[in-house]
Amino acid sequence: MKIIKFRERLGTAVPEIIGYDNFLKSLDDEIIYPVYLFCGGEKFFLTEAVIRLKGALLSEKESQWNYVELDAEKIDDKDLFSELIAVPFFGEKRILIIKNSQKYFGSESKASKKEGEVIEEYFDRINSSCTVVFIMDGKVDKRKKIYGKLLEKGAVVEFLPLKGKNLTKWIGDQFNAYGKKIEKTAREYLAAGFDDLELLKTEIQKIVLFCGEESSMVTLEQVKEAVSRTQSVNIFDIIDAVGNRNSSLAVELVREMLAAGESPVFILYMISKHLRTIFRVKSLLQDGYSEKQIVAKLQLHPYAFRKIMEQSKNFSMEDLKKILRLLLKIDLMLKTSSVNSKLLLEMGVVELCL
C-alpha cells in the first residue's frame, strides 16, 4: 500500500478534484492519500467511499480501535489537535473522519483562528500512521489557505449526483450484479422516479426478489408492479394527479400517503419539484429550444419528459407563475405556522389543481 505524502510524487499532475470513480481506482491501485476532503451532494457514494477506504486500510478487528468519527461542530482546537496526532492502537493505521468540515473549508467558515492554525500545522507535519477524511456540506471555498495546503498533501473527492445516461447505466449495473438485465423503458421509469440512490438501491433489491430467479429480463410491467406493492400510494401518482389537475384524485392520494406516515413537507417538495420542471420546460419551448435540446439541458429522462410535455398542456405560463408563488407560501406556512400541516397541504393541493 502506497501512502502518498505529496501529490507530485504520483509522477503526473493530479486534478484538484477527483470523482468517485477515480477515487475507487486509486484504492484499486493501492494509492492512499494521508488526507482527503469529501464534498458534493451525493451522500450515497460518499458513504460508500468511506466504507471502501475503511476496508482498504483496516481489518474488522482493527476498526474497533482505529476508526474514529468526530463532529467538527462539537470539538475545539485542543480536541482536534490530540485526535490528529494520535497513534494507532493495536495496529499500523488509523482513520479519522471529521464530519461537518464546512466549518473549516466552507464559504461561511465558523472555525476559530486557532483551529485553522492547528490544521495548517498538521498539513506541514503529517501523521503518517493516520488517514484523515474531512467531510463537508455546501460549497468549498477554494480561496482559503487551508484548502491549498490540503491539496499539497491530499486529494479532494467530489461526489456528484448521477443524472441522465449515467444514472440509467448505474441502474443497469445494479441489476447486472444480481445476474439480471432490465428493459430500457424500465430503467428510465426508475431513473425518473427516484432521486435518492439509497432508496433506489433498496427498490432494486425488492424488484429482484419480486421477479425471482426464473426471470432474467426485468420488464417495465414488473417494475411498476413491484414498486406499487412496496408502497400502497406512490408519490408519483400524486404528482401525476396534480399535473393533470385532478384535484379529487390528488387529495385522495395525499390523504392515503399522510395516513401511511409520510411527511407533508416531503409531499409538497416532490409536487413543487415537478411543477417547477413543467415551468422550465414551457419556458424553454417559448425561447425556441427543441425538445431534444430541452432534454439535454435539463438532463431529463425520455420517460419523464414525455409525461411532462403532456401535462404542460394543462397549464399556461401565468398559471404556473401563480402556482410557484403559492407553493412558496405553503412551504413557508408548513415550516413556520401552527396550522394543522395535513389540512394545509390538502387545501393547497386543491388550490394547485384549480
Rank of each mutant, 00 (worst) to 15 (best):
224 K>C: 00
219 T>W: 04
227 V>G: 04
224 K>Y: 00
225 E>A: 12
214 E>G: 01
207 I>E: 06
229 R>Q: 14
218 V>T: 07
208 V>P: 00
207 I>M: 09
216 S>A: 10
202 T>Q: 15
200 L>F: 08
220 L>C: 08
227 V>C: 09
235 I>D: 09
231 Q>E: 07
217 M>N: 09
229 R>C: 10
198 E>D: 11
211 C>T: 15
210 F>V: 02
195 D>T: 15
216 S>I: 11
219 T>D: 02
218 V>L: 04
195 D>Q: 15
215 S>D: 11
198 E>G: 15
215 S>L: 09
236 F>V: 07
222 Q>V: 03
197 L>F: 01
215 S>Y: 04
208 V>T: 06
234 N>S: 12
219 T>I: 03
197 L>D: 03
203 E>F: 06
219 T>G: 01
199 L>C: 06
196 D>C: 12
217 M>Q: 08
234 N>A: 12
197 L>P: 00
209 L>V: 11
228 S>G: 14
209 L>C: 10
195 D>W: 11
208 V>E: 00
200 L>S: 08
207 I>P: 01
205 Q>S: 13
201 K>H: 12
230 T>H: 08
231 Q>H: 05
230 T>D: 04
212 G>N: 07
218 V>D: 00
203 E>K: 08
224 K>F: 03
214 E>N: 10
213 E>T: 11
234 N>P: 04
236 F>S: 07
229 R>M: 14
227 V>F: 03
235 I>L: 14
223 V>E: 01
202 T>Y: 12
213 E>W: 05
226 A>K: 00
204 I>G: 04
217 M>K: 10
208 V>A: 05
213 E>C: 05
232 S>P: 12
232 S>K: 15
212 G>Y: 05
201 K>V: 06
223 V>D: 02
214 E>Y: 03
209 L>R: 12
235 I>W: 08
226 A>P: 01
218 V>A: 04
217 M>S: 08
214 E>C: 00
200 L>N: 07
199 L>Q: 12
195 D>G: 15
207 I>W: 04
220 L>M: 11
231 Q>D: 01
220 L>Q: 11
222 Q>I: 01
205 Q>A: 14
231 Q>K: 11
231 Q>V: 00
195 D>C: 14
208 V>M: 03
199 L>N: 11
215 S>H: 09
227 V>N: 01
217 M>F: 02
207 I>V: 13
220 L>D: 07
206 K>I: 06
205 Q>F: 10
210 F>M: 09
232 S>G: 11
209 L>W: 06
200 L>Q: 09
210 F>C: 07
219 T>A: 03
220 L>S: 10
220 L>F: 10
214 E>M: 05
225 E>M: 10
236 F>G: 04
200 L>P: 05
201 K>W: 09
226 A>M: 01
